[in-house]
Every structure is written in structure tokens, then in C-alpha cells.
């Protein structure tokens, strides 16, 4: 069983929901990623989603776009992101790590080379925003070979007859995008999320995580009622960037991230 499946199983047994923080490796400053990841685990992260910086992050709102730009300015690359995961694994063999990014850096490395390098670094899953099921065969052959899960997005406007196409290719969990828009947008409609979550569950037994538009304990709690996990991205990226911009140290950014994540953890856990 993969680390991700394992983690969702444990959480289910405990009656808890997965908290999945997102940040971009290399942001807000160089060399923060590994201690940040350990800090996120301390603050209650169940799975860590590591953004792989790209020059043209088309699905991102302004907050995460800036994170990609800062990370690249700090010299990050896909290879260095894999190195971050490898170093994290030296002291944490249990927390699943998901890489989220765009097709081109992975394609440029070569799907086979990437799969081997990611597996040996300790990566558990890959989510490429711009590789839909129609284009995924070549990627999945390699990910399956090394046992890395492929996480797919389902959108509010995904037709029901497409859901089967997506879940057939997916493993680990399903990532439901809670709104039509880019990351960090503010128009979360929890009733709609609830309806769609039920629909998706009628097509798959995979765990369901919800992301885009979750920014605090209240919104996380509302989504956690109907989901198996919640993803928190822009809000986290924002508090870290603000800490650095106001002259804080990398440690201060980690403290800010842990504080936000701790609040959200408490909000989600108040359900059980």
C-alpha cells in the first residue's frame, strides 16, 4: 500500500480528515523547504504538497504566481525540488509527499528519468495541472512502474460522464477543485462542493480532497464535513511571504506557517 493510501486509511480509522498544506519549493526564500516541511508536520500536516516552480504557472492566482517567481529567482529547479524531498525523507519516512506542478519541467527531464529520480527521493505522488487523462498515458506508464500515485483534478464543470475517465487513471486520492478559477480565489460555495463531492463518491472509492479557496479554520471546517482532506495553499504562501517581506527571518516564516496551519487543524478536528 502506498504511503498516501496508508495515511488516508489511518485517518479514517481515527475519524479524522487529512490536512494538506501546499507551498512552492524555494519560496519564500532559499533553503527553507526542509525545515518548513518538518514544521508543517509538527503543526498537523498529514500530507505535504510541494509546488514545483514553473515560469508559466497558468492555473495560479496572483499569490502563488509570485511564489513561483520568487522560487525561480532563488534558483530552484525540478532537480533541486527532488533533492528537498530526499533530505526531508532522512528524518521523516511516514508523511506522504505530493509534487504539484506543470507538464513541461517533468516532460523536459523525461518521464522515465523523473519517475526513477522521484521514487528514489521518496516522492509519493505527482499532480500535473496541465496533463488531463487524455494526455496522461506516457506519464502513467512510468509512474506505475515505480509505484508513484497520479493525482487528478476534478472541476466544478467536469461533466459526470468524464468523472469515470478521470478516476480510471487516478490513484492515491481525487483532488476536487472547489471553484472555477485560479488558486486563491475567494468564492467558495460549500453547498455546491457538498453536491459535487457526493456525485464524485458515487463514481470512486478513492479518498476525496478539496482545494482552491480554503483560507482559514472556518472554510476548512466547512469543506472537511464532506471531504476526506482539505488543501491549503495560497493562505499559507501568503503568511510566509508576509513574514519575510516585513523583515522576518526564515524561522519567522515557518512560525507563521505553523500558526496558520495549527488553527486550521484545530478547526478541522473540532468536527470529530
Amino acid at each position: 500500500m502506498s504511503r498516501i493510501a496508508d495515511r488516508f486509511k489511518q485517518l479514517k480509522e481515527q475519524g479524522r480528515k487529512a490536512l494538506i498544506p501546499y507551498f512552492v519549493a524555494g519560496d519564500p526564500c532559499a533553503d527553507i523547504a526542509v525545515p518548513l516541511m518538518h514544521g508543517l508536520v509538527e503543526a498537523g500536516a498529514d500530507i505535504i504538497e510541494v509546488g514545483v516552480a514553473f515560469s508559466d504557472p497558468m492555473a495560479e492566482g496572483p499569490v502563488i504566481q509570485l511564489a513561483h517567481e520568487r522560487a525561480l529567482a532563488n534558483g530552484i529547479s525540478l532537480r533541486k525540488t527532488l533533492e528537498v524531498v530526499r533530505q526531508f525523507r532522512e528524518n521523516d519516512q511516514d508523511t506522504p509527499v505530493l509534487l504539484m506542478g506543470y507538464a513541461n519541467p517533468v516532460e523536459h527531464m523525461g518521464y522515465d528519468v523523473f519517475a526513477d529520480a522521484a521514487a528514489s527521493a521518496g516522492v509519493d505522488a505527482l499532480l500535473t495541472v496541465d496533463i488531463p487523462p487524455e494526455e496522461v498515458d506516457a506519464v502513467n506508464v512510468e509512474l506505475n512502474r515505480v509505484g508513484i500515485d497520479n493525482i487528478f483534478l476534478i472541476a466544478p464543470n467536469t461533466p459526470e460522464n468524464r468523472i469515470d475517465t478521470i478516476v480510471e487513471q487516478a490513484s492515491g486520492f481525487i483532488y476536487y477543485v472547489s471553484l472555477k478559477g485560479v488558486t486563491g480565489a475567494g468564492n467558495l460555495d460549500t453547498e455546491e462542493v457538498s453536491r459535487r463531492a457526493q456525485l464524485i463518491r458515487s463514481h470512486t472509492n478513492l479518498p476525496l480532497a478539496v482545494g482552491f479557496g480554503i483560507k482559514d479554520a472556518d472554510s476548512a471546517k466547512a469543506v472537511a464535513v464532506v471531504a476526506d482532506g482539505v488543501v491549503v495553499g495560497s493562505a499559507l504562501v501568503n503568511v510566509m511571504a508576509a513574514a519575510i517581506e516585513s523583515g522576518g527571518s526564515p524561522e519567522a516564516a515557518i512560525v507563521a506557517a505553523k500558526s496558520l496551519l495549527g488553527d486550521i487543524r484545530a478547526g478541522i478536528d473540532s468536527l470529530s
Binding site: D130, I131, N157, R162
Partner: peptide, 8 residues
């Protein structure tokens, strides 16, 4: 090669 929201 686009995100799921645009596929429909």
C-alpha cells in the same frame, strides 16, 4: 494540455 476546468 490544459487544466480540468477548461476541458469541458
Amino acid at each position: 494540455f490544459v487544466s480540468e476546468t477548461l476541458m469541458a
